[in-house]
Design a protein around this nucleic acid. Structure first.
Lengths: 229, 229
DNA sequence: TGGCAGTTAGTTAGCATTTACTCACTTATG
DNA sequence: CATAAGTGAGTAAATGCTAACTAACTGCCA
């Protein structure tokens, strides 16, 4: 490995943190050995310890890096839409397709999902960090959309707190992802992922109180092109 | 430990499988040592190997035992209700309160939740087994309730497959449980668990297409007393 | 420009402990 | 006594981590 380029301390640190993510995500903290981590990072075991005092500190450094990772461009574009029923539809569809379809080749996303699950089995810290960072604005916008929708009479007047139902939508999406994750899915939904997204979106839209005719009006390919535009 | 009673091979096997469940659930396969398992089971490490050829075989024996565990009496009583909107409401409420509230002191249930989660990170096998065993009848009844509800005009005619939306309800419940699991919950819902159950139930009922006024009519303490009766 | 010194990236080889697992042995009981 | 339940004391390999070393880059002065 003498042909490998020499990096500055900081660059090496980052490259390790980056390389280690997939391994930890797949095998978990206890299931991963220093040897595997070093191999994945393309360095000697000893060098890991030059940069991180312990396996655990490396793990936490990696989690921090995940939490600080870049926000999704798509999501932040949606945040600039006006608060309306159609934006609500777009948001719900985005959340669900995001988890169910992922983005092809986005290995980081898959790893992050694993790490989020592991976090929930552990102390939940990563999930809390992620939410703190990127959920605040999203929550606000979602609630604003619900308000707007209610004002325009497209939302049933149901006793569900408008600041909470984003979470219910997220939960449907998250759990779908979880059950689709294993090599052979834990549930056989008997339909394609695209159809599943559409069905789950319908469920979520009705769940937040959207009236049936409004859902039918707004949940169409036309509105969803906003996403691709 | 010489005052401990001597057990027959089979009884010991079962006692080990039983004792080991909580440890594996909490720490995972890789995070648990034979020493811990032996200690929890109150026997020597060597005796474990008299009954199980390896750590892994013990793990799988334990998973099998979980999958074969007793079904819930409450759930099977519900299965005998007539297919109707009120039964639908009861079922949704049951699923959600089951995951969110658990039953106090039911340590087995908490362990099972962890194991299900770990299974999803692994091969999903346990989840599939559990569903195969206890979901089939439940699914059928749920779908029948939806049909009945549609026939009586209490369900919107929405394009969601009636055989799938049980899963959406389950997903909301499951994910709520996941996020409430860590010592400090991953999400601060800002309301009590009881209220959370009620809110999530509303969301799910509307999600499956129940009309607002029907939900309001059926989702009341009165109907839910069916559960306690 | 060349060469030397100090510093920092990186590795090799190993240490102390833990871990999964085994074997020879002991003890209780029908 | 014979059989089966149960254990103490290990073993070989793996694991997390470290010490002692080498190789490359940087700045400095002739």
């Amino acid at each position: 490995m003498s042909n490998a380029p020499r990096l500055t301390a900081e660059a090496r640190r980052e490259s390790i943190v980056e390389a280690v993510q997939d391994i930890f995500a797949e095998k978990g903290f206890d299931g991963t050995t220093i040897k595997e981590l070093a191999h994945a990072a393309g360095v000697s075991e000893a060098l890991l310890y030059k940069h991180f005092p312990s396996k655990e500190s490396l793990y936490h450094a990696m989690l921090d890096a995940c939490a600080k990772g870049p926000t999704f461009a798509e999501a932040s574009r949606i945040l600039e839409f006006e608060a309306s029923t159609s934006t609500l539809v777009v948001m719900v569809h985005f959340m669900i397709s995001h988890y169910v379809l992922g983005r092809p080749g986005d290995t980081h996303r898959a790893a992050l999902n694993s790490l989020l699950m592991r976090s929930l089995l552990d102390d939940g810290e990563l999930v809390r960090l992620m939410h703190k960072k990127l959920a605040a604005a999203w929550l606000k916008k979602f609630e604003a959309c619900l308000q707007a929708s209610a004002k325009s009479g497209e939302l049933n007047d149901v006793p569900i707190r408008k600041d909470i139902c984003v979470w219910f939508v997220q939960h449907v999406a998250f759990s779908l992802m979880l059950h689709l994750r294993p090599k052979v899915p834990a549930i056989n939904y008997k339909i394609s992922r695209e159809e599943l997204v559409s069905q789950a979106t319908w469920f979520a839209l009705l769940g937040v109180g959207l009236k049936e005719d409004a859902a039918r009006r707004y949940y169409s390919p036309k509105v969803l092109q906003l996403l691709a535009s």
